[in-house]
Computed example of a mutant assay.
Amino acid sequence: MSRLAVVTGASGGIGRALARHHARKGGDLIVAARRLEALQSVKAELEGEFGVSVTPVACDLGTAEGVETLLEAARDAPVEMLINNAGFGGSGAFLDRALADDFAMLDVNVRALMALCHGIAPGMVARGKGRILNVGSTAGMMPGPLQATYFASKAYVNSFSQALDEELRPQGVTVTVLAPGYVETDFAARADLEGTLLTRRGQSAASAARVGYDAMMTGQLVAVNEPMLSVLVDWIIPLLPRRVVLKMVRRMQEKG
């Protein structure tokens, strides 16, 4: 297979855009998501337009069985790039949310990402080259009242990715974390955030994917998809009092 990439959450949004960007550059793909019919659509589109090979793997990465299904599909393949995009959010005060829903969020946003890195990176190390892109969020750079678990899960992704890069880079494997702001996908609808200040304006999935992919290919450590947002999270928010940040983020996620 040519420059094989594994992309999770590839049926739509940033994941599908990342798969398309890789295919445009002539790379083959293993694409994963829960819905087989959506993956078959991705396969037909990318193979027809770019002449690459696309292997769909329908699996629920919120389960150990789903993660193992994907690892098995990639086990004997020379994976050069792992793109961990699968994830979801959910709004509401922590005590008002079902704890099982937040545990399910952690299973996809954190546990699956860890398991795939642990399962696929050793092959990269053995070959002395490889690139990993973990899709985090600028949400991981601040606390998130009314999305406490989601923001915390992305803080984990941001921290974990940078630490893993430091461990793997001497062995020829780089890890990049893409930390976008709000992106126009089905995220808002699924997280029940439509109508909030947070979702009033966002970037396209294609533009966010391009920033993340290009950063991965150059071995960049952290990539934020908007220059002004990068200034905000790197230089302004860290200097603000914590209570001010908390109230600001809460207002952005309140309805009405």
Rank of each mutant, 00 (worst) to 15 (best):
M1L: 12
R3W: 05
R3E: 09
A5R: 03
T8R: 09
G13L: 00
I14R: 06
G15E: 08
R16Y: 14
R16F: 15
H22C: 10
H22W: 10
A23W: 06
R24D: 01
I30L: 05
A32I: 04
L46I: 08
L46Y: 07
G51N: 15
S53G: 12
T55E: 11
P56L: 00
P56E: 00
A58L: 09
E72V: 00
A73N: 04
E80I: 11
E80V: 12
A86C: 06
D101Q: 15
L106S: 14
D107G: 11
V108F: 09
A112P: 01
A112K: 06
L113P: 15
M124P: 01
A126P: 00
L133N: 11
A139H: 08
A139T: 03
G144K: 08
S161V: 10
E166P: 01
P170F: 13
V173F: 13
V177T: 15
A179L: 13
Y182D: 06
T185P: 05
F187W: 14
R190F: 09
L193N: 04
L193R: 06
A205K: 00
R210H: 10
V211L: 01
G212F: 06
L221Y: 10
V222D: 06
V231S: 10
V231M: 14
V233H: 09
R242D: 10
R243P: 07
K247R: 13
K247W: 08
M248L: 14
G256R: 15
